[in-house]
């Protein structure tokens, strides 16, 4: 049971979260060649080492955020990063 650093709630049990997988920017669907698009959809880097990933704090603040975690040691690099404030002012 990992402790995951939610940027809003603070450190929480991983059972309070849903793991969102590797974090990759969604390419522009209109201009991206189909092979690259499918790469984004289906392929993972799966490194043994630092990985940028997404978590959803489902039992807490209900926010998505990204973190960097070492997949070998389960260390997290702080701080975790919120996505921009939803419902946006800008």
């Amino acid at each position: 049971m990992l402790i995951v650093p939610c940027p809003n709630c603070g450190p929480r049990n991983s059972a309070d979260m849903r793991y969102g997988g590797e974090s990759h920017s969604r390419p522009d669907p209109d201009s991206t060649p189909i092979e690259e698009w499918r790469n984004y959809l289906y392929m993972h880097d799966n490194p043994a080492g630092w990985l940028k990933e997404t978590w959803y704090c489902g039992s807490g603040c209900r926010r998505y955020f990204t973190t960097e975690r070492n997949t070998v040691t389960n260390q997290f690099r702080e701080p975790a990063i919120n996505y921009p404030e939803p419902g946006g002012s800008q």
């Binding site: 959803y56 998505y64 996505y83 939803p86």
Partner: peptide, 15 residues
């Protein structure tokens, strides 16, 4: 959650 995912991670500027 699907809707929140799109709003928060891809379209945060939508009200």
């Amino acid at each position: 959650e699907w809707a929140e995912n799109w709003l928060q991670t891809e379209r945060p500027h939508w009200q």
